Amino acid sequence: MSHTTSTQVQLVTRPRGWPTHDDFRTVAVDYDDLAPGQVRVRNDFLSVDPYMRGRMNDAKSYIPPFVLGETMTGGAIGHVVESADEALPVGTLVQHDLGWRDIAQADAAAFRAVPELPGVPLSVRLGILGMTGMTAYVGLTAIAGMTEGDTVFVSGAAGAVGTAAGQIARLLGAKRVIGSAGSAEKVALLTEKYGYDAAFNYKDGPVRKQLAALAPEGVDVYFDNVGGEHLEAALDVMNDGGRVALCGVISVMNTAGRPVGPNNMANIITRGLTLKGFTLGNYVHLAPEFSQRMTAWFGEGKIAYDETIVDGIEHAVDAFLDMMRGANTGKMLVRIASDA
Results as ranks from 00 to 15, higher is better:
M332V: 04
A28N: 14
Y196F: 15
D236A: 08
S83A: 15
K203P: 04
N263Y: 03
D30L: 04
D224P: 12
G75C: 05
V260R: 14
G69Q: 08
T270A: 00
Y31W: 08
E307Q: 14
I303C: 00
A266R: 08
L46M: 13
V161F: 03
I269C: 12
Y202S: 06
T191W: 10
W18A: 11
A142Q: 10
T132S: 08
D85R: 13
D22L: 07
R53F: 12
E289Y: 01
L231Q: 10
I309T: 14
F223H: 08
V334R: 06
M324I: 14
D30K: 08
V207S: 09
Q10N: 13
A144F: 09
V237M: 11
L126Y: 12
K209A: 15
W100C: 02
I77D: 12
G99S: 12
S123M: 10
L333W: 10
V237Y: 02
V317K: 05
M1F: 02
T71K: 09
V260L: 04
T255D: 15
R125C: 06
N328K: 10
P118V: 07
H96A: 10
V41L: 00
A316V: 14
G179N: 02
V161C: 01
L280N: 02
V187G: 03
R53Q: 10
E307Y: 11
L46H: 11
G145H: 13
V284I: 13
T135P: 04
P262S: 11
L190H: 00
V94I: 08
D102R: 09
G261S: 13
D102T: 05
A340H: 08
T151L: 03
G99N: 11
D107Y: 00
V48N: 11
S251P: 02
K186P: 04
E185P: 00
A233F: 03
F200G: 02
G182Y: 02
T163D: 03
V81C: 01
A136T: 05
M52D: 12
E300M: 04
K209T: 15
Q38S: 05
M146G: 01
G299N: 08
L93Q: 09
D197Q: 07
L273K: 05
P118I: 00
G179H: 01
T151P: 02
Q8H: 07
F278P: 06
Q105N: 04
L286A: 05
G227C: 07
V244P: 10
V67T: 15
M324Y: 07
R335F: 09
V154D: 00
V12T: 15
T92M: 00
V310K: 01
E217F: 05
L140R: 05
A104D: 05
